[in-house]
Nucleic acid binder design. Sequence first.
DNA 1: TTGTAGGCGTTATCAT
DNA 2: ATGATAACGCCTACAA
Lengths: 340, 340
Amino acid sequence: MTTPTLRDVALIAGVHPATASRALNPLTRPQVNAETARKVLRAAESIGYQPNPIARSLKTARSSTIGLVIPDLTNPLFPPIVRGIEDVLNAAGYNAWIVNTDNDPDREETQIESLRSRQVEGLIVATARRNHPLLVQLHAQGVPMVLVNRRVDGLDLPSVTADDDTGIGLAVAHLVEQGHTRIAHLAGPQGTSTGVSRARAFRNALLDHGLVNDAALTVECGYWSESEGAIALRKLLDSGTTFTAIVAGNDLIALGCYDVFAERGLHCPDDMSVIGFNEMPFLDKMRPPLSTVAIPQYDIGVEAARLLLDTIEEPDRHARSILLAPSLVVRSSTAPPLSR
Amino acid sequence: MTTPTLRDVALIAGVHPATASRALNPLTRPQVNAETARKVLRAAESIGYQPNPIARSLKTARSSTIGLVIPDLTNPLFPPIVRGIEDVLNAAGYNAWIVNTDNDPDREETQIESLRSRQVEGLIVATARRNHPLLVQLHAQGVPMVLVNRRVDGLDLPSVTADDDTGIGLAVAHLVEQGHTRIAHLAGPQGTSTGVSRARAFRNALLDHGLVNDAALTVECGYWSESEGAIALRKLLDSGTTFTAIVAGNDLIALGCYDVFAERGLHCPDDMSVIGFNEMPFLDKMRPPLSTVAIPQYDIGVEAARLLLDTIEEPDRHARSILLAPSLVVRSSTAPPLSR
DNA sequence: TTGTAGGCGTTATCAT
DNA sequence: ATGATAACGCCTACAA
């Protein structure tokens, strides 16, 4: 028993396959006699006909599928974004092909190639690197594309990101309000747009509050990870610089600090305050509960998907970028510095 | 400029498309003159020819793609499993289509239909429900399928799961060793195979240690979630039953308990010990760090993918199931009961 | 060893 | 309004 094809439907309905095709497609249905259409639909129903998307793609060179390039699914930041994207896409009749690149450029290239050859109609890319020849090339080829959480140097692409300036501003203002004056920044990788923009926002925020920007107080992490956060903090502590609070590039980096606090017998927040970025899940249950800057993850996904659909419909429209407002979440990892 | 096709390659190489096809496919390459093959490969290289998988799929009714059905990507349990699956699959020349069902049966059905119509060659399903007519039907249709983390009633399918018996046994033994005698179980949904098997394992473990199995000490959670864990624990506390330790169905349920501890002024572990299951990320940074039963998530993915590849190759082979051994991770959420 | 021809299931175009 | 035809890109008997 083979799966029914359009021919089977046509045979039962007593019409030509082309007519059946027209009757089945809502857009072309008006072209066919209402009575005939009904017959066809009934026939299709009776044998449980489902159009074959592969054959359709081959013919139309479209796929109703978009590719979703995620650097690391285990990063809790991404799943909610994926969900937002899927919800919008599914509602519009599209499916998302999720691929994981593990932050590996080669793997990313292979994966994107594979998506392309499957005729995806667009790409939503949450890639890490600022410098990204492949994306430049794809864009030149007219592939509809939206960036999420990241930007690529010299590429005027639609993107959806959290407003890092505002977010870091909120974090610094909060610490300053608590009385901190020597504030360190464990910056994300400066090869990523987010890493750069948060570091810049940090410097600006210090100036806004009339604090000196001591370059020794910013250390770059190699990755957006706990372990790199820990390494960076150790380096900072070993340097002998004094400080009472840390603005971490993201929550993972902030959590890495917890390990170092334990190693060095530092108490958070009494000896050291730390604030993260992203509001990943379960921060409220950490020891201590981590203060952070929350970004609307699901909405980022939603906006990204909308932007992509727009771009697919109107390829020549000028690139718009969307900045979503973050908000401060104060928990117990930030407190006034212990006076002594 | 359109993407090159087989015809273009053939044209350049000065051979017929059929010959080019044979030359490009490693399996049929021996059929063609070595010199000709070289010419074809060079031609393909020169114009960056990539076979169109859609056309190939249409012809061969295969896709080198398998479908991966995940109930909830937000659950930190799944990403590492996905990674294990992808690594094995990619190495074997397959790609994985990940879909998210949100635990919604309708959505799951749509998603699986969509995967099927895209000619996926097999399915790895991490679905929640024990009772699952759709899977039964697919299996009857001969769709290669492997279950991950779950089983389906009355379906003899290959599956990869953690050994719940052993895992729960470890947890209970640990608590008993600490001196607990009244131990509660916040069970996962009894509509899931894991929920049932852990609950059964819990009862058995109590008996093994000569403890009475007081039915009042087991409460079922509606979902595998923090909030449901909290609800269940409140119910248990309100019932007035006394107990000093909790075996939670999984880590999320255990974390839900933390909220209730805070509400009720209970101190963990002094007033109440709790142990989870799964070893999701960041448990070591919780307040208190959560003791749990670790399962080899990545390996579960690896084994599942291998099992699926085996099944695709040898459809008639008898279903094998793999049970992976868990291990105990003791942290600070479990301690001897406070004597008073 | 290579070429020929037909078809996978669908849809776009042309003719009726 | 419907039918006929061809084509999307590839693969595979079969023939040469």
